[in-house]
């Protein structure tokens, strides 16, 4: 069997495609489902550029076989709200953009789980997302801005 039918709940929609068995979740998203927002950085789980939410948790999609995501809920950067993007843009969170999709997904998860910051600092929490432009301060202020917004709403 070199292909199989993969069904996902992808950004809120149930979708099915026949995909190669060897595909990583990252490959399936980009080449089979056409969502090229998710980027491949290192391909070895170090850089976080390929971060997506799998069953509600941030994971490196380069370290997940597509097969392992069968039947799961997957959220990618394409499902980000314009308001979230506006806030991140206001603080210069994105420079060259290669790491940005992963950073946005990790940040979105944090906004839904802000109690995580009782256990670690924001900088430490974001350490799984590397930025080769080294624009970390802009990234952190963008996320702080997002977190403030969430706080204001609740």
């Amino acid at each position: 069997m070199s292909h199989f039918d993969l069904t996902l709940e992808l950004n809120g929609k149930k979708v099915t495609r026949k995909i190669p068995l060897r595909s990583r979740l990252l490959d399936a998203l980009r080449y089979d489902f056409g969502l090229t927002g998710t980027k491949e950085g290192c391909g070895e789980g170090e850089c976080g550029a390929c971060t997506v939410l799998l069953s509600g948790r941030p994971v490196n999609s380069c370290l997940v076989l597509a097969r392992q995501a069968e039947g799961c809920k997957v959220e990618t950067v394409e499902s980000t709200s314009t308001e979230t993007l506006r806030r991140l843009n206001a603080t210069g969170t994105s420079q060259c953009g290669a790491c940005t999709p992963g950073i946005v997904m990790t940040a979105r998860w944090l906004c839904d789980n802000p109690q995580t910051l009782d256990l670690m600092s924001l900088r430490e929490f974001m350490s799984g997302n590397l930025c080769r432009c080294t624009g970390y301060d802009g990234v952190l202020s963008g996320i702080e801005c997002l977190l403030d917004q969430e706080e204001g709403e609740s």
């Binding site: 789980g45 997940v64 990790t106 998860w109 929490f125 974001m126 997302n129």
Partner: peptide
């Protein structure tokens, strides 16, 4: 657990 990679690795 907090020293194993970062959240993406800790989740998986």
């Amino acid at each position: 657990a907090l020293k194993v990679g970062a959240v993406q690795i800790q989740s998986a």
